[in-house]
Design a protein around this nucleic acid. Structure first.
Lengths: 110, 110
DNA sequence: CAGCATCCCCCCAGATACTG
DNA sequence: CAGTATCTGGGGGGATGCTG
């Protein structure tokens, strides 16, 4: 619930961005939601084996609070939920794409 | 010293990038080193009032270990050091630029 | 000025168990 | 299946003091 507070008042725009995406797994979640527009909870879980269920849940709910992703709950048993990027969330794509590109480059040279 | 280990083996390139820049203040440091090519320790400190001296020092040394920044020490009294991006560090620019752009957009609409 | 060493507290996040 | 609730320990990070 509580997050680190960056001092955005000094006018470093990067800090505002960090406020939103600096959670340990958030950019990974965004990465998967870019590649696959709609994801279920269990699909994300499989894609991120090192992220516990609890952490995944927390990160998702913060992203939802910040209107970066939206959640659709189907009232069925067993439960079914779907996550996808909001319009605002989609504006984060360029950042994730650049991170992805850099990661590929880095992996191929190290 | 110890950092969170992302499981990059599964082929999510974003995790490789996080391994390098996910430190709490790293992208802010990079932001300042992009705007001002050469920075002294105290200059960075002034630019990041919410980051303690200890933390700044730790983050800088990790970035240096990862060859993202380089450090030049002048053997004078009082001490003087200068930090700048390495060639590898400069390849992170597109990510930081996108983060900066997004932060500005977000600030202007929220 | 640019750090490192130490102390110490708080809270993050893992493990586990439970539920609609 | 998709989460919550609770407990717990270890470490992240602040505060402070010291040094070349």
């Amino acid at each position: 619930m509580k997050r680190h507070i960056y001092n955005c008042s000094e006018g470093c725009p990067v800090e505002s961005t960090l406020q939103i995406i600096s959670g340990k797994w958030k950019s990974v979640i965004l990465y998967h939601l870019i590649r696959q527009e709609v994801c279920r909870f269990s699909e994300l879980q499989k894609s991120m084996p090192n992220c516990s269920r609890r952490m995944l849940s927390l990160q998702l709910s913060e992203l939802e609070q910040d209107k970066i992703i939206s959640k659709k709950i189907y009232p069925v048993i067993p439960p079914k939920t779907e996550y996808r990027l909001t319009k605002l969330g989609k504006t984060l794509e360029p950042i994730i794409i650049e991170m992805e590109k850099w990661g590929r480059m880095y992996n191929s040279t190290h």
